[in-house]
């Protein structure tokens, strides 16, 4: 097995596994940058996965080959609306944001499973007939080496994820909107004094995080899981949250972290084909992403500077 083959067998799955994490982590960056902690990413992903699968199953006959794309779009919208609950609690009702996020996680899973039982009469949905398939990108796949590594046998959603990350960076750092959003998370009183509507910005940010997590959840469901049950989304939301912090609350950093997690997760799956790795006991590869994250947090990046006003509700007129 040549080096290129190994590389190809690693890069493909790594990007494949990290795409849902990238989407969700970018959403997380928006929410946390505006000062709202979002532990509820997990639940928002569950909602996305649920809606994506149910929509796909229901509308397969009318929409045909467009079904998966429309499904993730609908999942994005529904999760954005679902996220409003988190926004209402943590912005308007001044709830503890971590607690509200935990409630979102419980609620999404409960609701998803309740409706699944209600509509399908069992604990999980059927398998979808029309998930996303891998494709070769026209022209680019022809490029020697690079084409083979990055543009053949890939999911288009993976490119969408990377595009979203770059767009997220542009919006947060190169537009007035992004500046306002960040200012609300750093010093809401100063932002308020400058005429920025703190509550509105935070609502928008939380809804963006809902939309992105919805995308992430539905993309995960339609590329990897292919149905919805209690074990469809197990911890991907928390991994994304870790990616947000690992990436120091920066969209591109979060993307890098998500890619790293995806890579680490893919190791345990592809190890059987890679010479050195196949002798390593499975358990070490399974825990590798988590151990590496802890090591990285402890050693490389140490103290991560979070947005200053994170986790605190803004109360007009208080100092």
């Amino acid at each position: 097995m040549g080096f290129l083959d190994i590389l190809q067998s690693i890069i493909g799955p790594a990007i494949f596994f990290s795409a849902p994490l990238i989407f969700t982590a970018i959403g997380g960056v928006f929410s946390e940058r505006s000062g709202v902690v979002n532990i509820g990413l997990e639940g928002l992903m569950v909602m996305g996965a649920f809606v994506g699968i149910v929509f796909n199953l229901t509308f397969i006959d009318t929409l045909g080959s467009w079904t998966p794309w429309v499904s993730i779009f609908v999942a994005m919208i529904v999760s954005a609306i679902f996220a409003i609950i988190h926004a209402v609690a943590s912005v308007t009702f001044r709830a503890d944001q971590v607690v509200s996020g935990v409630a979102i996680n419980f609620l999404a899973l409960g609701l998803g499973l309740f409706l699944t039982k209600q509509w399908y009469g069992k604990g999980q949905t059927d398998m979808v007939d029309r998930p996303f398939y891998t494709t070769d990108v026209p022209f680019l796949a022809e490029i020697p080496i690079i084409g083979e590594l990055f543009f053949s046998g890939m999911y288009l959603t993976s490119y969408l994820a990377i595009a979203v990350a770059i767009l997220g960076w542009y919006v947060l750092y190169k537009t007035p909107f992004g500046l306002r959003l960040r200012s609300v998370g750093e010093h809401p009183m100063a932002a308020d004094t400058n005429g920025i509507n703190v509550s509105k910005m935070r609502y928008i940010a939380v809804m963006v995080s809902g939309a992105m997590a919805g995308l992430g959840g539905s993309v995960f469901a339609l590329t990897i899981a292919l149905n919805f049950s209690h074990s469809t989304i197990v911890g991907q939301g928390f991994m994304s949250l870790a990616a947000v912090i690992f990436g120091k609350w920066h969209p591109l950093g979060a993307m890098g972290a998500a890619l790293f997690f995806g890579f680490a997760q893919s190791l345990s799956i592809i190890s059987s084909g890679v010479p050195l790795l196949q002798d390593v006991p499975q358990v070490f590869l399974l825990i590798a992403p988590y151990v590496l994250t802890i090591l990285a947090l402890a050693g490389v990046i140490g103290r991560a500077e979070s947005p200053k006003a994170i986790g605190t509700p803004y109360i007009k007129g208080s100092r």
């Binding site: 009702f93 001044r94 709830a95 935990v102 409630a103 419980f106 609620l107 409960g110 499973l113």
Partner: peptide, 22 residues
Amino acid sequence: VPTELVDIVIAMIIFFVASSYM
């Protein structure tokens, strides 16, 4: 009634506790 109804109830309880301001 599906058992999961209780998970929704629990979620709502946490939610209301969190929103105790209201």
